[in-house]
Design a protein around this nucleic acid. Sequence first.
DNA 1: TATCTATTGTCTCATTTAATTACAATAATC
DNA 2: GATTATTGTAATTAAATGAGACAATAGATA
Lengths: 226, 226
Amino acid sequence: MKFIPNLSYDCVIFGFNGKTLKILILEYHNTGLFALPGGFIKKDQSLKDAVNKGVEDRTGLTNVFMDQFQVFDKPDRANVFDMRRILEGNNKDLEENSWMLERFLTVGHYALINYEDVDPKPDHLSDSIGWYDIDNVPQLMMDHNEIVDKALEVLRNNISEKLIGMNLLPQKFTMKQLQQVFEAILDQTLRRTSFQRKMLSLDILERHEKLFEGKAHKAPYLYSFK
Amino acid sequence: MKFIPNLSYDCVIFGFNGKTLKILILEYHNTGLFALPGGFIKKDQSLKDAVNKGVEDRTGLTNVFMDQFQVFDKPDRANVFDMRRILEGNNKDLEENSWMLERFLTVGHYALINYEDVDPKPDHLSDSIGWYDIDNVPQLMMDHNEIVDKALEVLRNNISEKLIGMNLLPQKFTMKQLQQVFEAILDQTLRRTSFQRKMLSLDILERHEKLFEGKAHKAPYLYSFK
DNA sequence: TATCTATTGTCTCATTTAATTACAATAATC
DNA sequence: GATTATTGTAATTAAATGAGACAATAGATA
């Protein structure tokens, strides 16, 4: 067995489409089971490498911002019945893969990516992967809904200006877009003038040319992070 | 083997003696090796139960405030040489305990306890356990110094008034003691009047009788958390 | 008993930071 | 050229914090 036994990772991959915050969820072949992208850690592999690999396989992205935030370890979190269905749905040998039916602790991660850059690809066990609004996540297997909730909570607490926008937005963006990211994450509206003044005072933004959208009003500046 | 392989926990146990922030460190028999209190997780045990048990064994305390904050996973973090010395120093059979020489990922925790309540007890592998000032921690085995540094960083960032004092101080305390806890954690001096005003305005403290210390000055009130 | 010392609790006033409102600038439409 | 929707920034208010002043007081000192 090339993997570390009883240990896995799962990753809540956040994206922002300009309106709402979304996460990537995959569905397993012939089971109707939804789950977070996750996987196992090779015996000589760092956790970070393992997760990066998993995210790259499903999104095509490298150098993604990522953070591990909690170990989920309830002894009864594994659902042997579901796992068996997934293996059978993929015509996997149960004997050979019986290690997958044991207890697993999983290291929860979240990743922030630029929605536009992604071309989601299902892995060999699943037949679809897609974006779901953060407030419209389907029922997931095992304790994955709990992992999503916790990831969002941590994201809200860590909303330290720079990291967030830098990873969820394209290189250049308007002040309004930046504000919308914050509003989507915090799930509350912010005052435009206070937000703008605050962001500018932090001295983390660089101002570029204006963006002419063809709309009948003053054109906003584009910004990037310094 | 009754433990989950390749996985351990370690715990940075913080205490406050009225002056400085301290942590508990143990020394292994006949090796001169220092380490954080840690251990393994039984196959049917929750991580939390495992850590609680470890803390209770070494401090005698139950219901301790505790938080897991990071998995440390560098593939080369285990030091086979040191581990062998510990086993040999304790006359343990190398063959039987060879699983301990493999790669381990460890879940880093920190705990906050009331210094006065503790009677530190070494476990069966170590011959001493004692308090060390946070800015005078000896060289520890493996990556334990890194774990300590990270724990302190997390503690500083999480210094959300209530949790801290509630766990590091006795039930009743003076405003000065509370300020000293903050100063020890943040490693900076705070303005007395501003601190007092801030704490009182948070509406988390209950004021009790005065504490007469027999000193030649006005006696301070005792407070507890609401 | 009166005075002195160290510390505490609270006020005041200055300074900084943030919330709120107001308004001019402007890109495209009518 | 007037109109509309939105943007950038200035002006005004309000809240939080910094810095200092001062009276209160428990015990020590004389």
